[in-house]
Design a protein around this nucleic acid. Sequence first.
DNA 1: CACTCATTTTCGTCCTAGACAAACGGTTGA
DNA 2: TCAACCGTTTGTCTAGGACGAAAATGAGTG
Lengths: 312, 312
Amino acid sequence: MSAVASVGTSVFNISAVERETGLSKDVLRMWERRYGFPSPGRDPHGERQYGPTEVARLRAIKRLMDAGLRPGKIIGLPLDELKALSDARASERPDALAQSFEREIIHLLQTHDAPALQHALAQLVMRQGLQKFVLESVTPLNQAVGDAWMRGELQVFEEHLYTEQLQVVLRTAINAFPRQTTGVPRVLLTTFPNEQHGIGLLMVEALLCPEGVNCISLGPQTPIEDVRRAAIAHKAHILALSFSGAFPLRLALEGLASLRQQLPPQVSIWAGGDMTRRIRKTVPGMVLIPDLASTITALRSWRAHWIPRPGY
Amino acid sequence: MSAVASVGTSVFNISAVERETGLSKDVLRMWERRYGFPSPGRDPHGERQYGPTEVARLRAIKRLMDAGLRPGKIIGLPLDELKALSDARASERPDALAQSFEREIIHLLQTHDAPALQHALAQLVMRQGLQKFVLESVTPLNQAVGDAWMRGELQVFEEHLYTEQLQVVLRTAINAFPRQTTGVPRVLLTTFPNEQHGIGLLMVEALLCPEGVNCISLGPQTPIEDVRRAAIAHKAHILALSFSGAFPLRLALEGLASLRQQLPPQVSIWAGGDMTRRIRKTVPGMVLIPDLASTITALRSWRAHWIPRPGY
DNA sequence: CACTCATTTTCGTCCTAGACAAACGGTTGA
DNA sequence: TCAACCGTTTGTCTAGGACGAAAATGAGTG
């Protein structure tokens, strides 16, 4: 058991780096063996000590990996080039109109003005309506915040504040709709274990509630077996699962296939989130939702084909 | 890379068990070496295959460990005795009055009646008021739900539903209060990395908001260095950190000490949550909040001693 | 009896290094 | 254009050894 990274000295042990970067201890040791990076110093007991620059580089690498790049291609690059790479990908984004709003939000984050931030978000919800807000504003805003963090313009705690305030605003807006206890379809929302990001669920809920859908969210990280049980117990018409871009493709596909096999065919399974864009083939018996707008399409399609059955 | 636990066969690989139980791979292997339990079978590649009974026992052990028991004492016990132990601890609970409500909630969870559940919780908030609800109802309810899960009366997804609905109810109730943008004190709320449970933050927020406090929540898992930066950036009067019972004592104390050292003395640091009950000595320059009721006490005490300073 | 201090035991995390399967990327052939 | 193949890349599993921090225990003192 080694000392935690003391805040003042900015030295990280391997556990701290795992926390900070999301790269497992095994991976960190393996990279050191294979690529010679990172190459941390050792403390008197022979344990790895990572410096802040190494951690920053690892963070940048992880972020690019989550965007689809392979480690071997980028692990040798210095921090500048990693940032440049990230910028290049970021510039693919559209819509100069929304960008002024993005800049405003980021400015509010940088000045730590929580009330103004919440006000700005809430006001935009009012102006655009909940669905349009989620579809047209939140997605690019998430991207912009992530990029700003990557470029060092936002600190971690500022990103946390953004996520938290966004959740508050979405939750409030969702609550403003009357609860559809008899709505159809009943949609069960959750994520697989190891999937930390629950904000996607909230965004989907925000899209579906105005459509009169009866949403039941289990929050993130439900074990697969329990997802199955929950879908049956709640007599869900649709099981909606969210996957962030970082989620291992194979784990997702295996879990989904196993659920498809075990659930009755009248239960639709929707798989959404950034990960689904990495899926090449179509998956039998499953609806892929690569972007949020497709949620609405999928709902309309479901409703067009649905045949009411007694008791389900 | 091994196959994920297939749902039908109910076989778990070591990663799946880590997910399911919260025990690290290292610990699982070490227990096997030291105590001979668990002793999973092997697949054709020599990788561990855990069965559902072993996983259930490991889960029970983990839960008792989180309650403060040591692994050596309980690792040899069969599942029955583990459950009996948990019952014994549960029966220490007070207040037969609240227990009928607890039973009602658990029944609603078991019948998967999400609307009725939310209604029951919301109604109790109305009747008791937010603060009393949190102090007198939520804590024993959490305990009861945890125990019911332990005894196998609740499934994981039913516990998830409970957590989610409770969050919705608390968030809604908090939003009902006018936002205190100039309130004093400003309280910054968050948890350390590796601390998954954010519900405690919401409960504290629910206690403080009615008192006119200006709460700024960063959500869970803020790196310590960023906690420091955030406290300074937001000019927080109080930094409130929540720790679940499972959180490693040493990590918490080191992090807290380091924060105390680096933050100006006029910033109070509050440490709350189940973990704080394991702390024996008093920690210099820090307020320990072993139970939720102490939050209010601590707030009154802070206000009594506070001297307004220009700009802070 | 409460309390402190020192010693022993318990327990988790880190270490090294080897093996192997899954996923990726490119190429070939239909 | 799509499917099948194949080398390369990459992450996770395996094993046991070592060590320090925390908890439990025992001894001594007020």
